[in-house]
Design a protein around this nucleic acid. Structure first.
Lengths: 156, 156, 156, 156
DNA sequence: TTTT
DNA sequence: TTTT
């Protein structure tokens, strides 16, 4: 009866602000930031060029949130994969209100770090060495999904 | 400067109601219907099974809307591809309100038509023949994206 | 320098055979099965209906492989998410050969279990109870990605 | 009976060569180019960093092919959406051979044009004006899917 | 090789 | 064959 469903979002856009962190008592945390996607098209009747910006509320958790806070700067281009979640809340008049956000489950930075307009948080001009932040910058999140060793030498 | 962005949603879920149509003066139309996706997981601390339903507002246009209205029945499983769009409106108190919907650009019916719980609109037990609705049921929308003839015999 | 890339495949199709398992000495395993996707279109010049089947070689690992072997039957419809991998091998004439497969990282069964044409492996008519295989049948793989408890009550 | 299937590929990678065009007698054309995606992970047993490159054969048609040829330069980053197609051919020994390619149905350039290492074909330092190639550079292909006018003012 |  |  309850065979599967899918709730997947894939975005490429530019961040509109820094990642805002919230820390929980239990040790967890979430980060939030806005992401802009753009569409451009020509109005068929008037012939004029129209440009639309869509803003998405991105929510990312725990370790991934910390990576985003550390390396994502305002204006950076990023690929976000996640799911849609609409949360219901009550405003100060007691009215039901809804807010839709994208729960980020995977991401990839698309702005080369030397171009990222990082402030203090951004690693820039750091010393060399295996473990410098520059080399630690994750191109792809969710490393736990990385293949294991016997990836390439399967005899089948 | 304005290199590309992406705004893509892919859903597999069950429709929660019939498709509601709206017709415009110019000849266009849109259809709307709710789509449910489910997630189930075990709460790590309490160990209890949690089941969550997410409702998505699907909007589909013109020809595709008419196909959905004709063949999609309440409860059917369907694959929806589209983009996220949040529309702003003003409520009767003059407050800004936001409503997020999925603009459907492609879809695929996943419920075999003999299982679809169609009412009058659903083709069921109809006579045979090349052009019966049952055989017309489109498995995939957006036929304009179908490959053209020289698809398979490329000498390269 | 090494900013991110993406290699993602999403398929909905029917399995063409049972899952074939291979077990490794270290305790790991992989399962393999063919998956068919279809496209239909009308040849614009001749007007005839063309139907094409594409076969994909699905490879799934470890725990997920065992779940597929247990619950996926020939002919079942399934959603597969993964990445493309082309493996190079040498045939008995010493020629380089290439074989492309889909490494499955997530999946969702789309055939309701009561319709699955399972043989001995398929749970059918089993006794009731919280832990019967029927209820254990996973609608969605990769449970580790499930949200944790504080999912819905974020005060932000 | 023939309810739907899905065959979708989404890639972000770097082009490994220029777009090679082939023109047909009927007026159509296709372009081909290799696209590299990378995965990096740490081998759990040895602890060493492993870097893998996957090469994809991209095939794009007609108008979209011409746009790619004109604006895509070797090394550019691009988002590609399409479907998997494995073509069968016979080698000079009469053996069956298979070649898998990605039929591109949509794309988005991710390298800002001022950074693209274009040769003669790349518009660089051109004069201003509404119709200069720089402004014509399409960030997103498949403009036919663009929304029409009554996109934002739906009274529903 | 094969699914619907 | 090749990209970063």
């Amino acid at each position: 009866m309850a065979s599967g469903t899918l709730n997947k979002v894939m975005l490429i856009g530019h961040t509109g602000d820094e990642v805002k962190m919230h820390y929980f008592e239990g040790g967890g945390c979430i980060g939030r930031f806005p992401l802009a996607t753009n569409e451009e098209y020509v109005n068929r009747t008037t012939g004029e060029r129209v440009s639309n910006t869509e803003w998405h509320n991105i929510v990312v958790r725990n370790k991934a949130a910390e990576v985003c806070e550390k390396y994502l700067n305002k204006g950076d281009k990023v690929y976000i994969e996640g799911r849609i979640k609409t949360r219901k809340w009550t405003d100060d008049k007691g009215m039901d209100r809804y807010s839709t956000e994208i729960q980020c489950l995977d991401f990839t930075f698309l702005t080369p770090k030397e171009q990222s307009q990082g402030g203090g948080a951004q690693p820039q001009g750091q010393m060399s060495g295996v473990s410098t932040p520059a080399q630690q910058q994750p191109a792809v999140a969710k490393p736990s999904q990385a293949p294991d060793d016997n990836d390439d030498d399967l005899p089948f």
